[in-house]
Design a protein around this nucleic acid. Structure first.
Lengths: 246, 246
DNA sequence: AGAATAGTGTCTTTAAGACAATATGGC
DNA sequence: GCCATATTGTCTTAAAGACACTATTCT
């Protein structure tokens, strides 16, 4: 068939003539609670892979989701009630075998939320969901290739924690530097030097003092807020692994 | 409908019951020639967007491509004849408006190849293609959202050039450090200090001497080869921007 | 006063930048 | 020997690590 114009071509085009894949968005929603990095998992209530733990996610709604990010955002709001989390695309996995229903592509996003904020917004869910620590989640028999997806998301988060201020997104608006450092240490699984950590945050202008302080037992601590426009900021060096003792 | 088992569910499942998106893979194939970073563009020979310049790419072949990477690799071989380039997924863009045919997702990959290797393997193409410098490509009226895709790929490449040895993939097997440095300078658009550059490559063990040297006019130069298992290696710091003169 | 947590001073270390000096081979 | 390009020496600088010290509040 020969077409004479874009319009002519389009009026003769029928999507159903071609094979299409399944398209899903899956979310690794992270939070820190009880001294551990946690991920929100759901228990699948339907086939396929019924009753297995899985990352929240599902089909992109082509009629209502304007783009992939919107689809990810919709799922996040459904599960957590949180409107403005940190949300980042990690990767897409697509192959003929990951879903028994056929050639399937999933676009993986990760989100960072403040656990306290989640508790405030918690809504009744149709599907059972639970916060599970990363270490435990990795031992579960997750649905589909979700273990691989979880690993990709965790790897992205830990890498970025080494050279960005991203973990601020796991905190409330105001936080102390000690609290922020603790979050870094939980994600990295490594102790950090207090002085280096504070100098780094302050000298780069990533955080700034507020006029408030937090009283929680002993000496009150200065409360800080995130001071940059966005989360693209990269520190000039990555945090090192602890040096050898000798 | 109630299903009693995974098998029962699958035997009743029909993909055509659900809407599916268009799925394409697009490639930013980079090379360096004539002192400039170049990208391989094709002139579209069919609707939609006929006669516009575009990144090579096209529909994932669900019957023959086992996964997304295989699809990207297939397109790369078709266009360049090169079997083992550096290939990395950049991002996926999916929305209702980028393609007039309907909700469309493209998975963007970038590839790095040695220009000389390309010339050796060049094959006749059905579609007209041409190497175009990045600066020129950005001024063209590219098809669909390919300008955005190109920008994403270039950004990924320049970022990684600051902290990895990736640009080695744009070189032949054996290369001199001066040649490698020139490639870095072209990608970054910035002069680098010779001593710092060599020290960095050598001390990290990213490259190692071979027993060959290259005679090209004046003093012969030592030929090196890439010495690491893969391209995941990160230098401990990023290359800096030139310091201020004062 | 003592304990506990917040916050600072300052020396060392690592790896990059700057730039001058030396080495090698073709002509 | 001269020139161009390759290669090295070495001082400076930026930012992180180590670790001891001071400050503030509660009990």
């Amino acid at each position: 068939m020969i077409f004479t114009s874009e319009k002519d071509f389009l009026s003769n085009y029928n999507k159903k003539d071609y094979e299409s894949p399944l398209l899903t968005v899956d979310m690794a929603i992270f939070s820190v609670d009880a001294g551990q990095l946690q991920v929100l998992l759901i228990k699948r209530s339907n086939y396929p892979q019924k009753d297995k733990w899985a990352l929240p996610g599902g089909f992109v709604n082509l009629s209502h989701d304007p783009d992939l990010m919107a689809s990810a955002h919709r799922k996040l709001v459904e599960k957590t009630g949180i409107q403005s989390p940190y949300l980042e695309q990690v990767a897409s996995i697509g192959n003929a075998t990951r879903d028994p229903r056929g050639w399937s592509v999933t676009v993986l996003y990760f989100a960072l939320i403040d656990f306290k904020e989640f508790q405030k917004n918690a809504t009744e869910q149709t599907e059972y969901s639970e916060w599970i620590s990363i270490s435990e989640a990795k031992t579960l028999d997750l649905a589909f290739d979700h273990l691989q997806l979880l690993n990709l998301a965790v790897e992205r988060l830990t890498n970025k924690t080494r050279y960005t201020a991203l973990p601020v997104s796991l905190m409330p608006k105001l936080f102390t530097l000690t609290e922020l450092q603790q979050i870094y240490e939980i994600i990295l699984g490594q102790r950090l030097e207090k002085k280096s950590f504070r100098r780094r945050m302050l000298e780069a202008g990533a955080v700034e003092e507020t006029d408030q302080s937090k009283i929680a037992g002993k000496r009150p601590a200065q409360l800080y807020k995130y001071a940059l426009e966005n989360y693209d900021f990269h520190f000039p060096r990555t945090l090192e692994y602890p040096r050898e003792n000798h």
